[in-house]
Amino acid sequence: MDIAINTGATLFEQNFSDFVIAVKNAGFDSLMLNIDSGSGGLDWDSLSKGIIPKDNYLYNQPSAIYNKLKPQLDIIYKNGLKISQAHAPCSAKLITSDELILFITEVYKNCIGFCQLAGIKHLIIHGFCKENFDSTHTYEDIKNINMQMFTSLIPYLENTDVTVCLENIFYVKGKVAFNGICADPYEANEYIDTLNSLCKDKKHFGLCLDIGHILVTRTEINHYLSIVGDRVVNTHIHDNDGVSDLHATPFAGYMNWDFILKALIKHGYKGDLCLETYSYIEKLPKPLQVPFITFSAKTANYFRDVLNGKITLK
């Protein structure tokens, strides 16, 4: 069980090496690679207006992504860190045109190829969600779009070591979060089991449990885990105020971590613990960023000790 933190927007920044060294010194084993971040990534504002950048490296070839990220991968591996998971570009709301859906699906196919080249086993793909006050698409429409998109990835997954992880997602209506894709555990099972039944060589689909999203969607984690079971292969760990998806460091929110950890123990979770909190850390004053990375590693290590039985909760 590795402890990890996400790279966020630091991936293409000049100080990426400093970030990696801070993460290593803090005690993390691993990173979550945010493939689409910083310069060169997708321009979501333009995409939402229907401007599709077919010259973008993410749309090109898996080798183009690999070559673009090779310097960062070298820094990560040189410093003795592993990569627990990669996160594909998030497009949860962009279902404005068929052309856009096809474009994003091509990007996902290339991300699979990149993961195989880079030796990354888990690739997180959100899938599409209902936009705020979207009256065009029904629940069934969105489910069909998602199922078609994920099914189209299967030929690119076969004969690789890559597992595509769907994630429990939300969408916001008014100020409140509602169930997006896989936030209902039975729906998560339906997606994952249907997709795996279509894979010829082995199971290529699993679930990334986002614990922050569990709180904002007001989900009872024991109920959720009792249904999705061992389909959960990785995690996103962060905290919030129960309303906004703050991606705050654990204990900077209303999450009952004892309750969460006991649920993970009860349901036998053995995968990595990935803090998805870099967007929170990068907003801190510069002199406090390394101290917060250090404390984040101590927290993740405490969680691991609890899950491994080294620390017993009351």
Binding site: D258, P287, P291, F295, K298, I311
Partner: peptide, 19 residues
Amino acid sequence: FPKELHADMLNLLYKVGEY
């Protein structure tokens, strides 16, 4: 925070105070 994190939490809080 759980007691296992008390010392680390205080180290962090002191850094915040220093800043």
